[in-house]
Nucleic acid binder design. Sequence first.
DNA 1: TCGACTCGTAGAACGGTGTTCGTCCAAGGA
DNA 2: TCCTTGGACGAACACCGTTCTACGAGTCGA
Lengths: 265, 265
Amino acid sequence: MSAQMPEIPWHKPRKAEPRQPLSRSLIVETAVRVLDAEGLSGVTMRRVAQELGTGPASLYAHVSNKEELFELVLERVVSEIRLPPRPEPERWKEQITEVCFEAQRVLTSHRDVSLVSLGSIPLGESQLAITEFLLDLLLQVGLPPQVAAWALDGLGQLIDTDAYEASVYAERIARGTDIHEYFGQLRTFLLALPTDRFPKLQGMADTMVTGDGDERYAFKIEVFLRGLESYLPADARTRRAGGADGGDRADHVLRTDRADRTVDA
Amino acid sequence: MSAQMPEIPWHKPRKAEPRQPLSRSLIVETAVRVLDAEGLSGVTMRRVAQELGTGPASLYAHVSNKEELFELVLERVVSEIRLPPRPEPERWKEQITEVCFEAQRVLTSHRDVSLVSLGSIPLGESQLAITEFLLDLLLQVGLPPQVAAWALDGLGQLIDTDAYEASVYAERIARGTDIHEYFGQLRTFLLALPTDRFPKLQGMADTMVTGDGDERYAFKIEVFLRGLESYLPADARTRRAGGADGGDRADHVLRTDRADRTVDA
DNA sequence: TCGACTCGTAGAACGGTGTTCGTCCAAGGA
DNA sequence: TCCTTGGACGAACACCGTTCTACGAGTCGA
């Protein structure tokens, strides 16, 4: 590539910038930029077109729909998710947890893009790669194929839903709502409930508002994985004693819970 | 109440019908009617107002937002969910499964209303009643309070997400897409994947598309409940042998899976 | 070299959306 | 009786996704 020649001064082009031509990927890239800046609801055909210095009609030559554009944006985002080099069945629960948190990290770093994936079957290349990885791992662990297949459904839902929920909270925080104050209000609300109709909810107000998003996410993953574990054929269940594998983010629950136990008496 | 007097013929009111006055509940009721007829995206302020024979501005005296209207609609819908008369801890898993299916039945009977509940904390009266019931049940079973509290989160997400997913499929069917053909295409797509990059997915195409929404839903619930079960303190674990309790919709998995096992070799 | 023909580019417009403003009017309290 | 108040509502604002249509530049065959 040679150095760029300067423009001949008096030969000014009709349009100020001889913009690079539109293309699917350029449009998607721009849409992601808008997404990051203004959230999913800010990604409109007009807004993206404006960012490209043109009108909304121009986009329709490369993208048939806003829906299709969203799918492309989702796929672009999902492609940022990094998978472990290979499945390690001997620590499958930790590895799945890692993938879930990596997915959430990437998804929530692009505002509420997870809303797109909630209703759609993940058929993009990167999405399939993640599915393939998890499926491979689950099969190597020894889960029955039908269990593994259906488990993917559940894991996908878990990831998407939690990412979306997290993004809703993030949005709230970004709009100025202090998260502590918010949970405080929630706690006050629960405490103010009529005791006769909502005894447990009222009594457990503190327990209900305990734990941030990550803790709750880790807990849900752990519950799901323990449930999956119960589908392992007897000969595939290795004998690592249950609580000894460290690094479990939600394990402290079993240690702290006895303290709260009183509210329930 | 006396009989209605006839209108004086020449004293015709300016407006043809002396409509009953607007009110929050009338607006919500109308919105639900529109929802059932045209789906959530059909519920617009203009459409609801038109149904009431007025303009959109009139609604804002009773409802501050479209968002608030949606919340009210959701609460109205959720109030249709019928709970069992009382928690029965000795069959807690069956009872929770029943509640989940009842919730899904009601939610999906109102199109894609579940989309509303995905991002919002359930603070409506009926929603709280369900939460209270489940919380009570989980505590009676003997789950640690913190586990029970967080489990509610997971169950709520499971219900909402699956209801939304089911409604997306229902919408597709209503728009003419044959569901068998759709799954057939999905299977073909999976079979056409490059073997080197997606060996498991391609090999398990049939297993992946096995099972309708209800089966998969039942499976996910069962997995979650088995996971919860593992948090039971030893003294709360009753000794009913694991597989003997009938009526479990997803149990056949453990019997059929061996057949599909071959694809995985 | 020239003409025809394609195809990406866009301006304008259509029919929608949520929400606000200002006006009007009827019911209720003083 | 007057005055206040609050609901009703037409009009308008600023958007939205999408389509129609004209235009213009590039390419390809003759």
